[in-house]
């Protein structure tokens, strides 16, 4: 039996999915969720094999939902508009269904799941790339983190710096530290480069928090943040800092 979750904020959209899934007795719907918060809880609770995930949803969107879960089910995105296709592929989506989609198209997605295929054919990928070229995904204005069982939404303005930590990234927000399973490169791409700068292989800092730079010797520079934190700056990082600050 394949265990499935339906995640969409519109009841009617879930109706369509439920109706289509009705023709596949080997699929069992465990729960339906109408927002990202509920989805995170339901995924942790049921550990489903497959989820149908809408992208634009209340509170936290589909991508943020995926960032917060440890159990990674196979994901089929369902969305009304194709501006997110590229990001969905980057996240190794099994498939990407554009609403309204036909039963045949849905059957195709199910086939992909059953065959254990991951990602799409190269043609599809290329098409998506072409479609998305010129569409810049806007910079993230918030980072969603989990604090025990609580989900917190941190405005990027309040994040002082980020630090790479094995497979995780430490996010420093006020006096708290949150761990996210992610890479610094990911944040380098998703955060506004005018605001966040990677000054070291393992550190990114929020320029608005920068208090002063201390030169220890020729190759060692230390960035002092307004909250008293000191961050090492690499040579390349120093060059970037100088450029951004116009030194």
């Amino acid at each position: 039996m394949n265990r499935v979750l339906l995640i969409d904020d519109e009841a009617l959209a879930r109706d369509v999915l439920r109706h289509y899934l009705g023709s596949y007795p080997e699929f069992e719907i465990l729960e339906e969720c109408s927002n990202g918060f509920d989805a995170v809880k339901a995924i942790q609770k049921h550990k489903p094999d497959l989820i149908f995930l809408d992208i634009q949803m209340p509170r936290i969107n589909g991508f943020e939902t995926l960032e917060l879960i440890e159990h990674q089910p196979k994901v089929i995105f369902t969305t009304a508009y194709d501006e997110y296709a590229l990001k969905a592929f980057e996240l190794q989506a099994l498939d990407y269904l554009l609403k309204p989609f036909s039963e045949a198209r849905f059957a195709g997605a199910i086939q992909k799941y059953l065959q254990g295929k991951n990602a799409l054919t190269e043609n599809h990928k290329l098409e998506a790339l072409l479609n998305s070229s010129g569409k810049h995904s806007e910079e993230a204005r918030r980072v969603v983190v989990k604090d025990g069982s609580r989900i917190q939404i941190l405005p990027v303005e309040e994040i002082s710096h980020l630090e790479a930590y094995d497979d995780y990234v430490k996010v420093f927000h006020k006096d708290n530290l949150f761990l996210k399973k992610n890479t610094l490169s990911y944040y380098e791409q998703s955060l506004d480069p005018k605001e966040f700068l990677r000054v070291h292989r393992s550190f990114m800092l929020n320029l608005n928090f920068l208090h002063r730079l201390e030169t220890l010797d020729k190759h060692n520079v230390l960035a002092h943040l307004k909250n008293g934190v000191k961050i090492p700056v690499s040579r390349a990082g120093y060059a970037k800092l100088r450029e951004v600050l116009g030194l």
């Binding site: 519109e10 009617l12 959209a13 109706d15 369509v16 109706h19 009304a80 554009l98 609403k99 309204p100």
Partner: peptide, 11 residues
């Protein structure tokens, strides 16, 4: 537009 079309489909 597309979400509405999808709702119509569901209805």
């Amino acid at each position: 537009l597309f979400n509405s079309l999808n709702s119509i489909k569901a209805l």
